[in-house]
Design a binder for these strands. Structure first.
Lengths: 252, 252
DNA sequence: ACCTGAACACCGTTCAAGT
DNA sequence: ACCTGAACACCGTTCAAGT
């Protein structure tokens, strides 16, 4: 793990997109988050550094401190951006006279969040602890709680389940099998080969299922099945755990 | 967020437990992990630093590099310790002629892992990505896959569900409501008050459920209910998603 | 309002050397 | 085998100052 930045390849690529591109635009919270997100996508969350960001922007590290109180706030800003990219499904498909049940709506709801997180998988984990810090996140949370209340859960249970739902989809997005994010695919690919080799050298009589399952998991069908199973696990669990509702929603 | 270490209070407390305690014992992987774990418990994962650890041990930072190739390996070591603290439920309650079904055994299985993780909640997140790196973790994984195969899942699904199960219980442990871990309870308590104040200043007509649910969640009944609901959510979900088994296990 | 310069207190890690 | 010393390339952040 060398940390010397001798290779300026990827850094330059990002440079040209912003500062070195001639039109030296003003710094702002938005542009900073933009370039942070580009950096996350290209080199992972650990690469996001005040100094690195400033350098890419052609600016002094301290310049960023005018726009964000500290690094934590910058990360909050990234999370907020991800959450504001979520487009929630329209509330009422009111044309039908038969209302869609809460579980299929919850499914669509979670799918919408997943779609936004998948755009920047390496940053997805940030939102887990930062949902309540932006209005976008609060809107999402409020919707989730409404759906869970509709399912019959009380306030405390709804809060817990909403948290678990978020955790589950973040986990799904961050550990999607085909996903490679790091500095370059080459290095990660090698790491994966090493890991696989280590697994295959295990005593097969002791870990038969581990060896078979991991291989099957990495081979991985399409991501469609992956997310479907992950989501259905949660939804079906919620359905099973939900207490009986007091009367189905009145059909007007 | 000042990083100056003017206050030597907690540091001294850890010091006395190890280096400053007279009997200057030899360094080893075990003792290093011991003190790392003590540090995690006292001040959180971010406080775990090669230099800090070395200082607490009364030794040069480089000394640790003889025992661990780099910091990542040290974290692997912490995760391995947590996993080796798990005592899996006994395989056969063979005395009964009616075998326990997979779902209640899976429940007990997850409870056993939770018990170990709860001992060091601030370190729990480490195991999520490190299960396959130790024999303790591999044993656990193998057991999980056996149970899931018994439920009728194929190899790929089993791998995915095992990963989600681990993610779920780690999430449960790390975000248990009553939990305070940081440098001192005082500072965290203040942070929580600030957060709660921010929530209560929200427009109540826009976020009624958020305001009610969060309050209910933080008030929090006992942790028994919390873990029960979280576990049942997963188990019931798995039960619902599980394909039909080819004949129930033969009663001998 | 927006950014720079210099400085401080930390990091992880390498490499050569001690015992 | 086990540890030290000195050095390198990084961090986040404060504080005073520039325009």
């Amino acid at each position: 793990v060398t940390r010397k930045r001798t290779d300026a390849g990827t850094a330059a690529a990002i440079d040209t997109a912003t500062a070195a591109d001639g039109a030296k635009e003003r710094l702002s919270r938005e542009t900073i988050v933009d370039s942070a997100l580009a950096l996350v996508d290209a080199e992972g969350l650990d690469a996001v550094t005040i100094r690195r960001l400033a350098h890419d922007q052609g600016v002094t590290p301290m310049a960023l401190y005018w726009h964000f109180r500290d690094k934590e706030r910058l990360l909050d800003g990234i999370a907020e951006r991800l959450l504001s990219n979520v487009v929630l499904p329209a509330e009422g498909a009111a044309a039908d006279d038969v209302p869609t049940s809460w579980d299929v709506r919850f499914h669509q709801f979670l799918l919408a969040i997943i779609a936004a997180l998948r755009e920047h998988p390496a940053a997805a984990d940030l939102v887990r602890t930062r949902i309540m810090l932006s209005t976008a996140g609060l809107d999402i949370t409020e919707s989730a709680l409404e759906l869970l209340a509709e399912a019959g859960f009380d306030e405390e249970q709804s809060a817990q389940l909403a948290g678990q739902a978020l955790g589950s989809i973040v986990l799904l997005v961050t550990t999607e099998p085909g996903l490679e994010v790091g500095p370059d695919a080459e290095l990660k690919e090698q790491a994966r080969r090493t890991k696989r080799a280590a697994l295959q050298s295990l005593p097969p009589e002791r870990y038969p299922r581990v060896m078979a399952s991991v291989e099957a998991f990495l081979a991985c069908g399409d991501s469609q099945e992956y997310f479907d199973l992950g989501l259905e696990l949660f939804i079906a669990g919620a359905r099973a755990v939900a207490p009986a509702r007091r009367g189905s929603p009145a059909v007007s």
